[in-house]
Design a binder for these strands. Structure first.
Lengths: 213, 213
DNA sequence: GTCTATACATTGATAGAC
DNA sequence: GTCTATCAATGTATAGAC
């Protein structure tokens, strides 16, 4: 009697075993490594399988296709990626809130550069696989926060800046240290090791000056 | 007697005809379109050939390989891309010079978004084909300008900011509007049309505040 | 669940007629 | 110079033994 037919592909039917969860995790980890470094088309299942230390057919036993694997990665990342923005609190001190957001973003860039590059690859190539996420959850969140920022401006608590451009410039400056690390490294030589420390000081100073009413 | 054997591949031997130059230009234009949108591996010679309106073998008559085509694109772009930074003048007013640089960068992002994305694709994927350019001409130029900025700081003409991070933040904020256009569009709705005008005002204001001594 | 073998599609590049 | 036909390599995915 096929009790062990609880194939990962049919997730709805049965709870995955510990082994299955670990393999799945290892594959996702390997996929993140390869996709983030080479983009979707640049990555091959061979590379991912080797990185995860299993055979290609075995990999395809856990994930139906290359597309499915990539989609799973993106979906799993969205929440973590947007959390720093979601955490901005309307009741806190505006400048403190925004500077804390910048610091969180920078820490994310330092700790999870591969995730950042995965998104960057996607968006530069016109987000063929994540348009929905962009127009859905992210758009809603940005709408909510731009309104909050505008309210702070109207209350005279921060200088009058365009809320959208403010958010874009925070995204750009923080993610730059993950996405364009190769360039940063080529330009900075000795200072490279300390880049996140010095960047944090620089960016907090920068945005504080801009936001002071 | 083969008078017409002046094949483009053997460029050193003979001056290319007008037709040859035009075809070459059309191919490079098509290649830029496709490479910038899909990255090196994501692009196919079929796509580029179709975009340039010729057959794949004919394309390969003008360029020896996909690699060669990509290399030619990158090489031809470097100069245009670095010119705004090179134009910063040590004798001008520091804040005026830097703000003018920001405006030039933003205009480049607006006029040549594909070039920006081509570079971005390269660098995110660890610049496998342009490490040399990064460590060569670009590094030299950045070294030169960081020294100039430091001199301005020492003279008390601008506020004391880390010159490297200043340059990075200018790159990040300006190129963001080209590289992440898909995201910008998804977030901005009505304001999207005017994005470069409002961005210019926002960024000039931002960096002016930061640089004022 | 995992592997070997292989089917099948895509793609970079070449051969050779015109 | 340009095309049709084709090759060789690569890469996604499946079949089927164990």
């Amino acid at each position: 009697m096929s009790k062990t037919t609880s194939q990962p592909r049919a997730k709805a039917t049965q709870k995955p075993t510990r082994i299955q969860r670990e393999k799945t995790r290892a594959i996702l980890e390997a996929a993140l490594e390869v996709f983030s470094k080479r983009g979707f088309r640049g990555a091959t299942l061979d590379m991912i399988a080797e990185e995860a230390q299993l055979s290609k057919p075995n990999l395809l036993y856990y994930f139906a296709s290359k597309e499915a694997l990539h989609a799973e990665l993106l979906a799993g990342l969205m929440e973590k990626w947007l959390e720093p923005l979601a955490q901005i609190e309307q009741n806190g001190d505006p400048i403190t809130e925004i500077c804390a957001y910048i610091e969180r973003k920078l820490e994310l860039a330092e700790e999870y550069p591969r995730e950042s590059r995965l998104f960057a690859n996607e968006i530069i190539q016109e987000a063929p696989r994540s348009k929905n996420a962009l127009n859905g959850y992210l758009k809603e969140l940005v709408d909510e926060k731009t309104i909050l920022i505008q309210r702070w401006i109207d209350a005279g608590k921060i200088a009058p800046v365009d809320p959208h451009h403010l958010i874009f410039s925070i995204w750009a400056t923080t993610q730059h240290y993950a996405d364009f690390d190769t360039q940063i490294q080529a330009m900075m030589d000795e200072g490279y090791e300390q880049r996140f420390i010095t960047a944090k000081a620089y960016l907090v100073d920068l945005f504080t000056k801009v936001l002071k009413p």
